[in-house]
Design a protein around this nucleic acid. Structure first.
Length: 162
DNA sequence: TATTCTTTTGGCG
DNA sequence: CGCCAAAAGAATA
């Protein structure tokens, strides 16, 4: 799909407990968020909506709140929207397996994985709450590495110990 | 339409 | 516990 953007293309870049987070907003919509595990430079924005996004993210990471209330304009197929919507309905602190979510949507586990991998807005769309049936599962195409660490951090943040 | 992808699953050593 | 192969559905060209 899409790779990470260059730093200057992001509306803002913030530092979080799991590394850098690149935020891209357009007008009053959230377009996408990227993990920037490597080197990154924090970048500030003057855009009001973007500040809102940052604030909610900070609140989430600090444990103040678990819900996001943001307008987002995601580009994707109808199927992906269906999956992403379902993901957002998963309550804080709960996980689903691919199989479970798949049967809910009358589809297959791998199709879910496809949509999750294409997820343009990690964290806010809680793709990290989807785990494998027998293992924690991978993250963003990796079964090991920094990305998986992020997933683990997020899960522990929600009091889910794997 | 054919090819390639997937954060799977289940089984076996 | 770790590695391998199969199988289903969707994205992509």
């Amino acid at each position: 799909m899409k790779n990470t953007l260059s730093h200057h293309q992001y509306s803002a870049i913030i530092k979080t407990p799991i590394g850098g987070l690149g935020i891209l907003t357009e007008k009053n919509n959230l377009i996408r968020i990227d993990f920037l595990c490597n080197d990154f430079q924090p970048k500030i924005t003057k855009d009001l909506f973007c500040k809102q996004v940052i604030e909610q993210l900070r609140d989430y990471f600090s444990g103040k709140q678990n819900n996001f209330d943001l307008m987002m304009e995601t580009t994707g197929t109808p199927f992906q929207h269906r999956v992403w919507q379902a993901l957002q309905k998963i309550p804080f602190g709960k996980t689903l397996s691919y199989g479970e979510l798949a049967s809910k949507l009358n589809t297959s586990a791998r199709a879910i994985g496809n949509a999750c991998r294409a997820n343009p807005i990690p964290v806010i769309i809680p793709c990290h709450r989807i785990v494998g049936a027998n293992s924690m599962g991978g993250f963003a195409g990796a079964r090991k590495g920094e990305l998986c660490d992020m997933k683990q951090w997020l899960l522990q943040h929600e009091k889910i110990i794997y």
